[in-house]
């Protein structure tokens, strides 16, 4: 067993420097690496390029990094919940690349699995496809998309072990398994970290080979973005 546990979030994020490209897991505020984001705010790392499906909300998730102007460029599919984001984008302070959600996921998986590029029908005929190679397969037009290149991937799991094996819960899984192993170094923060040999190998979602550093987050707020309930009759 190769031991991946680090003792603190500070140790986990060592080597993240100004100007780097980070992948961050999560969909909305669900399954985001909130301890790592808080530490990035403290570290004041700047000029970051962030690959993440969303940009958080004004005061949580990646919104915290946006408020401090630590992000130079966002690559996302949907950024609708963040007023500060919209302001920075419209004034040109923030560079934004919006791409289809499935393309975002697949560009992560391609990076993880050694596929340099792939063709997808998504975005053909739209402004997103401008400048990209297109090709017809089986009578349908497709757009070529490239694997991402990132310095660090930061993912969040429910449980993990010291070998870096990960188990996710519910829809907090989302982009996390696609990003693990898709960057030069992958950092996993987990709600519960156990010794290797404790988790059932049959139940592992992300094998430890994709994770270089793992730590247990100090606390999880797990904020709900849109609390929606049904009335009892």
């Amino acid at each position: 067993m190769i031991y991946k546990k680090v003792n603190s979030v500070q140790e986990a994020l060592e080597g993240i420097e100004n100007g780097m490209t980070l992948m961050l897991g999560g969909f909305g505020l669900c399954g985001i690496p909130e301890n790592s984001i808080a530490e990035l705010v403290k570290k004041e790392t700047k000029n970051l390029t962030c690959i993440s499906n969303n940009a958080g909300v004004d005061d949580f998730g990646l919104g915290l990094l946006l408020q401090k102007h630590q992000i130079k460029k966002m690559i996302s599919s949907y950024v609708g919940e963040n007023a500060e984001f919209e302001r920075q984008m419209l004034t040109g302070e923030l560079e934004v690349e919006l791409i289809p959600q499935g393309t975002l996921a697949e560009r992560c998986r391609a990076a993880q699995t050694g596929i340099p590029a792939f063709f997808t029908p998504a975005s053909f005929g739209t402004e997103v496809a401008i400048g990209k190679e297109t090709r017809e397969f089986n009578g349908k037009m497709h757009v070529m998309e490239l694997a991402f290149k990132a310095d660090f991937a930061i993912v969040k799991a429910w449980k993990g072990d010291t070998a870096g094996n990960l188990i996710f819960k519910g829809t907090a899984r989302n982009f996390n398994p696609c990003m693990a192993g898709a960057a030069k170094i992958t950092i996993a923060e987990v709600e519960e970290l156990v010794e290797s040999g404790t988790l059932d190998p049959n139940q592992i979602h992300t094998p430890g080979i994709f994770v270089q550093r793992i730590f247990q987050g100090e606390k999880y707020e797990k904020r709900i973005e849109k609390r929606t309930v049904r009335k009892i009759n």
Binding site: F27, C30, G31, A105, T171, I224, K226
Partner: peptide, 25 residues
């Protein structure tokens, strides 16, 4: 409500018998 269980509109949801979870790819 469960913070780990939402739909594509970010709303809290439930699952029915036979449901499954999977990654974005």
């Amino acid at each position: 409500e469960d913070a780990d269980l939402i739909n594509a509109g970010k709303q809290t949801i439930t699952t029915l018998e036979g449901a499954s979870f999977f990654d974005s790819a």
